[in-house]
Structure formats: C-alpha cells, structure tokens
Design a protein around this nucleic acid. Structure first.
Lengths: 410, 410
DNA sequence: CTTTGTTTTTCCAATGATTTTATTAAGTTT
DNA sequence: AAACTTAATAAAATCATTGGAAAAACAAAG
C-alpha cells in the first residue's frame, strides 16, 4: 500500500535530508545546514539532536567564526553501527564487517570448495553464524546483512532467481538469513552493487545515468537510470553479455547466437592468445609465465599490453572493437553520462580506453557522445564489499520525492 | 534544491493519492477511500472537499448500502479543465483541446508546408494563438500545453536538442510558449509520449517496466524503467533505431553501420517489395494499388499479408527477424513486462506478432521471456494527442515517494 | 577591559496538517 | 418502532514544522 503523508513522514524525510547532507558535505554546522536545506534553524537543531541520539552524527569541535559565535561542527559517525557484507562468487564466499562508510573492519574469505546449489547456501549460513561469533558485537548495532551474487536476482523479494554456474534457482536467501539470524537482509546482483558503489563511493558520483561494465569470466552490466538501478520486471535487466553483436556468430550457452559475451571476456581473450601462439606468433607473454602459458592471467595480459607486445595489442584491439559495438548500443539506448569499466583486464589499461573511446566517438550520435565519459573503476580492490554495503546504504538512507508539483487548482 | 518536508507536503501527497484513487478506481465513497488508503475518514473528507472545490472531483449519486447509510459516490471530473496537446511531425502539426482524460474536444491539423527550423516554430506559435482564439475558453482553466515531437528532446528544460528532419537544434520551445502565452508548457519526445499514453490510457497499464516500439518512417522506442521514462542524461535515450544488429551492413546516416532502422521501417520494407517486383515476383499488392506501385502504403502491405500474399509474407519475415534480434537485446537489457508495437505496419498484423514472439522465445533467456507480453498498441487513432496529454498528466498528477524506509535507529 | 554587534544555537508559542474520539445522518434488520 | 450498521462530519488532541525572541559564544572597536 502506498505510504500516505503524516507528521512522521516529514520528520523522516527531513532527518534523511540532513543526514545525507552531513554525510556527503560534512562537517557542517547547524546553521549551515539550515541555509543549505531551507529548513528552519529550529528544525535542524531538533533533527540533529535525534541523529546524535541515534549515534549517527557527532559534534566535532568548532569551525572558524564568521564574526560571531563559532559554529559547532557536525560530522557523520560511521563507526557506531556496522554492516555485514557478503559476496558469493563462483569460487569463493567473502564476508566482511564494515562501518557505514563501507570501510572494512574484518574480512574473511572462504572457498566454495566446488559446491553448488543448496550445499553452498547451507555452508553460507554456517559461515555467517561463525562470522557473527568472531566479530562478537551486539546484533542491534548491525544495520543489516547485504548479499551480492551473480545471476538474476529478485532484489525486492530477496530471491536468487537464476544462477547457472552455482546452480541456484529460486532461492529465498533473504528470508533464510532473516529467519535464522533475525537481521534485516538485502540481496542484489553483483554488478548492480558495483555501480551503486561507484555512485556512492567512487570518483564519479552524483550522476543519475551511469553504466558499469565488468569484464571477467563473463560480461555484465549494472545500469542506473534516473538515479535508480534498472532491474527490470524480475531482476533480469542488464544482461549486457547476452546482447547480440553478430547474427552469424558463436552459439552461446544461453540459446542465442552471437552474444557479445563470447567475444568480450577473459576466456575469449585467452583462447585468442592460445591460438595465435599455436600459429607460431611471438609474444612476451610466454616469458611472463616462464613458458607455462596455462598459467597466464589477466594481469599478465595487461602487463604485456603495457610493454607494447604486438600479439597482445592485436587481441585487445579485436576485443575492443566488439566491446565498442555493444557500448554504442548502450549509449543509444541509455544516453549515460559515464561508462565505468571493472574487472582486472580493464585496470591499468589505457589502450583499452583509448580504442573504445575512439570507436564510440566514430559510431555514436554526436549529441550522445559529447558529454560521455569512459573511465576505469575508481574503487580499488575491495569493490565487492563496497558494493554489498552500497546496496544496503542506498536503500536504507535514500528517501526522496519523485515529484513535487502541486495538485492543479481550479 | 531538494524539497523538504512540511505540512503542505503531506497535504499535497494525500490529496494526490486520493485523487489518483478516484481517477483510477472511481467512483468511490469517502469511507471506501479511507479504508483503501489507510487515511482517517476525517482526512479524506477534508481532502475531498478541497478536490470538489477545485472542481477535480464531483459527487454522483449514492451507492448500495452495506447495512447502514448509503455511501455518497465520488467521481473524477475531467471536463472542468482542459489541456492543449500539440504534435509536431515531419509533415504536419496537430493541435487539440482535451479534457483531463485525454478525450479530444477540438482538433486541428495543419501541414508544415515543407518548412523547417525557425519557420516551423514561428508558424507553430501563430497556430497556437489562433487555436486559443477558436476554443475561446478561460486560460486559467487550461492546465497547460504539452508538445511532442521527434528527435532528441531535453524535456526537463523544454528544449528540442536535435531533430535532423525538421532541422531543429537547441530550440527552447517551452520557454517560447510560456513567455508568449503565459501557460505552463511541457515538451517531450513523441515515443516517450506514446509509452506514457499506453501506461495511463492503454489496456496494458500498471506496468513499471515497458517498451514501446514504433515502426514507421524510422524506428524508435519509448522505454519505462521503474515506472519512469528512461530519458538518459540529455534526452537521447531510447534511440533503438540506431542500435546495431549487423556489423557489416548498411551504412546509416547517423554514422554507424548496420543500424536496425535501416532494416526495420516502412521505407526498408517498401524498397524490398520494389526490388522483388523488379525481379519478376508476383504479388497482389500491384492489384491493390491498381498497378501504380508508387502509391503503395503500409495499409496495403498489411492487407496483402492478411490475404496470404507470398511476397509480402517473405518481406515481413525478413523484417521480423531483424526486428526480433533487436528486441532480444532490449529484453536482455531491460527485462520488460511488455513490448508494445505502434505504427500502421504493426496494426492488424498478427503475423508480425507471431514471428517476433517465436524468435524472441527461441533467443531470449527463458526467465526473461516467461512473463513477457508482446502486443500491438491499444490506443487507436488518436495516440498522438493522447500521448501529448499523458506527458502533462504524468508530471502534473504523479507524486510518489521513491522510498519509505525509516532512518536507522541506534 | 568593557561595550557593541554578529553569528550560532535554543526556547517558546503559533500554525496547520493529521488522528482520535464523539456525534450526527441515513440507512437496514428484526 | 426499536436496535443495529455504516457513512460522513465535528470537536479536540497530537505533533513536526515555522517565526520570533532569547540565550550563548565570540569578534572587534573604543
């Protein structure tokens, strides 16, 4: 049922606005908040008192006077509550305790041991129990658990709808965790989490229309439209890897033909490299792995690129072209302000950016390319946990009005 | 600046909820509204009194008793205000007066006379002045003017950014109209308007994720994500016609190669028909136009299809395949609940639906196809004006909270 | 050092939207 | 006709906001 307006609502809204302001632009004084928000100084004072009571905000010294009483500065207190973030990937389960700024306090990584399906889930539940014991903090200070995983996720109901690699189908994970531990739980797709992380904690925040592309074992996209995640009807939106770039191409596991994922991902690149070597091409990559090409990693490939290896560059150019074709489609469909690349193959890889930029500039409508940025992720190593935290924080702290028009008067 | 919470806000919100309820589910009694909305009966009474005062709602007899006093039924009164809707297409300008349910009271169609650029705009302004004189109603009863046109439109600022066919570039139409007539003005892309029309007035409303595909001189898409139009950073989203389905194909005016628009639109179909005839193929289409194939219309083509004409069916199958490739991409990126077809070539054309459905079923991930509907538009002839009205109504009457979580308590 | 003026913050009464409680209106049922 | 139901309104209570006044804390001028 739609929420109706009452006094509680305006209070929550104003608290949320003020907290947001302190988080993003703090430290700030009460009077500064009042000026920026157009709320009365009185309202700000009472709201801030509540936030201090809730230990979300604290006073922190005074600022410089502007000719009168010194302002008391207020800052966000991220350390009085904690978040449990969980990432389930094909090979490992990561659990971390974080503060409200997604800073990691404690982290554990476990192998999935090749398990799939229900086995992974019951193992996960054990691990959570174990982890809660390790950190040994009052559960009422825990804002919640946030789980991210690959595949199609119904984040509204907290159900993993479909994850072929881990063999998940319709697993009500949110319910399972909430019932066992009595902690509010969030669940989302991993790429959605990463784009939220970029929005909240990356260098490229403030954008309302952005796309995150992750290149790794597969190819995925997280997409923000009008400031909210494009999830689609049942969480299946953003399956960029299964969009088509070639009608007569490789047949994909998904049933379609010519899915871009078969051209743009580490396995595709790797097999290109292997076949080139088999055809007798020279490359420093063989040296980088001391002759054992089966040990070649994405980092080696990027290393070779940056050393000017011809084979590597050729393979990259081919991949870049395929990728760019897909990106041009995304640009035409979403008109984003920024496209962000994630995945090891994209880090420290200026050539990729350059090639892709060039192609997109040639092929996209000028008006769509003008303001477009294409950048690598700015989050660093812990992007997975930051992503998990972002899912929770976005939902928990965001509270905004879609529309503020007055009802028409006669 | 973000709107803060105050008493006015909750009042507007509640009025809006109540008005919405009466519009969509009316006639309703006050007590029924109170039950459904969880607002107190008193609040409903005062809100309804305001709405009656504003002439947006009226009482209309009594309902059947449920064992006590008969309920007084309330209904939406769409006829006490009016909307001026305007559509600018390549060949014609349409202006209509409509009530708040997008029912047309007066409509005029003018040729653009082959004019372009500023000429069209100054002509348009003349036409509006003329039209206002014709209808001769108090301007304070006019909710606003809503203009829709092709091309890339910055609906937020009311600027036509780019329309190559009419040679518009950065025309601040909203400002021009508002300053000349002092009436609030909306501006949007035509396809966005059509999808909003389907959402508000079509058979397939209530959906939060939907796509409208229009096939005509070109190929366009209007896309609703999470209940709001996917406009992108500067209004350029939804350029479906310029997404790629073939890397080595026809070079498009836009600079890209293999844009779907060059395969799926009436001109493409028409030229296929011509070349087939030139190669000596037989078709009843020549008879339908009494031998003058240059007169062939989309309606003739559909007619031929429904009469089982082999050539027409072949051409349609080819187009359907290309279209479906693009649709599969859309399904993977947006996971919509429904795809709606507009344009003359799609009306009364079950074969198109069947072919497309079959292809999408084969190629899309099962989980994305399961709930998907593919349907022709349900709006009838006046879809353009209904679209224009919908843009205004969506913005004017929608007032909802994105999020209603409580701020975290310590 | 004192006075004056400024800025920041808080207190208090007033406003105005909601809700709760009570009342009136207008029925149905026995 | 009396008793019971339901619908709509009225009066009073609640509570988060605002505006104005007051208090706190400080800078600058004399």
């Amino acid at each position: 049922m739609r929420r109706t307006g009452d006094l509680k609502l305006i209070q929550e809204l104003n608290r949320s606005i003020i907290l947001d302001m302190i988080r993003k632009d703090g430290p700030l004084s009460r009077s500064e908040i009042a000026k920026r928000s157009n709320l009365s100084p009185t309202t700000v004072t009472t709201a801030v008192n509540d936030l201090i009571q809730d230990r979300l905000v604290s006073e922190r010294g005074t600022g410089v006077s502007n000719g009168g009483r010194k302002p008391i500065l207020l800052q966000f207190s991220p350390d009085n509550h904690y978040i449990i973030g969980i990432s389930i990937s094909n090979s490992k389960i990561t659990i971390a305790e974080m503060n409200l700024e997604a800073r990691i306090r404690c982290k554990e990584v476990y192998s999935t041991r090749g398990h799939t399906g229900e086995q992974v889930i019951s193992y996960l539940l054990e691990l959570i129990e174990y982890f809660i014991n390790i950190i040994n903090k009052p559960l009422d200070l825990c804002v919640g658990v946030s789980v991210i995983t690959q595949g199609i996720v119904d984040s509204k109901n907290g159900v993993i709808r479909y994850n072929p690699k881990l063999k998940f189908e319709n697993i009500p994970l949110k319910e399972l965790i909430e019932q066992k531990f009595n902690i509010k739980t969030w669940l989302d797709n991993d790429t959605n989490a990463y784009i939220l992380a970029e929005k909240h904690f990356g260098l490229f925040n403030h954008y309302e229309n952005m796309i995150y592309i992750t290149i790794g074992e597969g190819l995925g996209a997280g997409i923000i439209v009008n400031g909210t995640i494009n999830r689609g009807h049942n969480g299946g939106a953003g399956e960029f890897g299964h969009t088509n770039i070639s009608n007569e191409g490789i047949k994909c596991d998904c049933g379609n033909i010519g899915c871009i994922e078969n051209y743009v991902c580490w396995p595709a690149v790797y097999s290109r490299i292997l076949s080139s070597i088999a055809r007798g091409k020279q490359t420093i990559m063989t040296e980088l792995v001391h002759g054992d090409i089966s040990q070649l990693t994405e980092l080696n490939f990027v290393d070779a690129l940056n050393k000017g290896d011809e084979l590597a560059i050729n393979v990259l150019e081919e991949m870049s072209t395929y990728l760019a074709i897909g990106l041009v489609n995304l640009v035409h469909l979403f008109n984003p302000q920024i496209i962000i690349f994630g995945g090891e193959i994209t880090t420290n890889n200026p050539l990729l950016l350059q090639k892709v930029n060039q192609f997109v500039k040639e092929r996209a409508l000028t008006i769509l390319y003008e303001d477009l940025q294409i950048q690598p992720s700015s989050l660093g190593k812990e992007f997975e946990m930051i992503g998990a935290a972002s899912v929770l924080l976005q939902d928990k702290f965001q509270f905004k009005l879609t529309h503020t028009e007055e009802v028409v008067k006669g």
